[in-house]
Structures are given as structure tokens and as C-alpha cells.
Amino acid sequence: MHRESDNAPTTPSADKMRAYATQFVDRLTERSRLPLDYSVASLRLVDLIVDGLRRDRPDRARVALTLQGLGAYTGEVIVRRAGGRWVDFDAGQREFFRQSVGIRMPDGRAWNPLGKVVNRFETGPEESVQRFYLMLHGRARTPVRCL
């Protein structure tokens, strides 16, 4: 496990992110009927959930676990739909992305879905999670089989 800061939740290592995302989705959807089905279209829902979290302008620390869960879900969509894989970032990447884990695409590029969700929370609609996916470079050339 990695620790980002004293105010941030503990982030699982790359080999635990799939299970973390699955557990987050299970907890979130047991209370509501949110269609978090790992589809690209469901990333629009991630944008809407983050916008709802922003509405009352809470301190980021209050919603940090939810943001981390939504970032893990976003990353897992990239893994399942675009051929990425979870990786633990090296020291330079951790400093640059301000996260300990991310996604490596088939072309070798690294992406930061957890940070993208935080950016949506801090900045607003111009930081769309769904648009992030649609503009992702390095996706697999052939469709990735959904697990």
C-alpha cells in the first residue's frame, strides 16, 4: 500500500487496483442503481457523480475516498476497454502525477485516471473523465475483450 499524504486515503498497489475498483462499485451500487458497468459510456456518470460531490464545495479530504474509488473505476474501464494495465509509478512519475499508481497503455504511455477524477473535482466540467478516455492515446488497436 502507498500513502499519498496524511490527508489522503491509502492507495492500493497496482496489483490490487482491480479488486479495489470492484469493491468500490459493489459498495456504491448496493445503495443505488447506478449503471457502473465498466463501459465507456459509464464514464459520463463518473463526471456527473463528481459534479454532484462538488455542488456543496466540500473539503477534498471529506470526499477523498469516493474520488479515489471513482479514479480506480475509471482506470479499470481503461484496462478493460483500451488494453491498459495497472502499474505502480516510479518516483519521478509519483512526483509528476501526484499518485502512486496509474495505467500503462500498450504503446508504453502512462496515464493517471485517479488524478483526472481529482482534477474534475477541483476544476469542474472542463476536466471531463469521459473525454479523457475518448482522447486517450495508445489504446489497443483491436477491441479488448471485457472480463
Rank of each mutant, 00 (worst) to 15 (best):
L28S: 05
L28K: 05
T29N: 06
E30P: 02
E30W: 06
E30L: 05
R31C: 01
R31H: 07
R33S: 13
R33W: 05
L34Q: 00
P35A: 00
L36R: 00
D37H: 00
S42P: 01
S42A: 04
S42G: 01
S42E: 01
R44C: 01
R44W: 02
L45C: 06
V46I: 09
V46H: 03
D47K: 07
L48D: 09
I49F: 07
V50F: 04
V50W: 10
V50I: 14
V50G: 04
V50D: 05
V50P: 07
D51H: 04
D51Y: 02
G52M: 09
L53D: 04
L53W: 01
L53A: 03
R55W: 01
R55V: 06
R57N: 12
R57Y: 10
R57Q: 12
P58H: 14
D59L: 14
D59H: 13
R60A: 15
R62S: 15
A64P: 12
A64F: 14
L65A: 08
L65Y: 06
T66A: 15
T66P: 04
T66Q: 14
T66K: 05
L67R: 03
L67N: 01
L67H: 02
Q68E: 04
G69Q: 10
G69S: 13
G69V: 12
L70E: 02
L70M: 03
G71D: 11
A72C: 08
T74R: 07
T74L: 15
T74E: 10
G75W: 14
V77I: 06
V77G: 01
I78E: 09
I78T: 15
V79R: 05
A82G: 15
G83M: 09
R85N: 04
W86V: 08
W86Y: 08
D88W: 01
F89D: 02
D90M: 05
D90P: 07
A91W: 11
G92E: 14
Q93M: 13
Q93Y: 06
Q93A: 14
Q93N: 06
R98E: 15
Q99V: 12
Q99I: 11
S100D: 07
S100V: 01
G102H: 04
I103H: 12
M105H: 04
P106W: 08
P106L: 09
P106S: 12
P106V: 05
P106A: 12
G108K: 08
G108D: 05
A110P: 04
W111T: 07
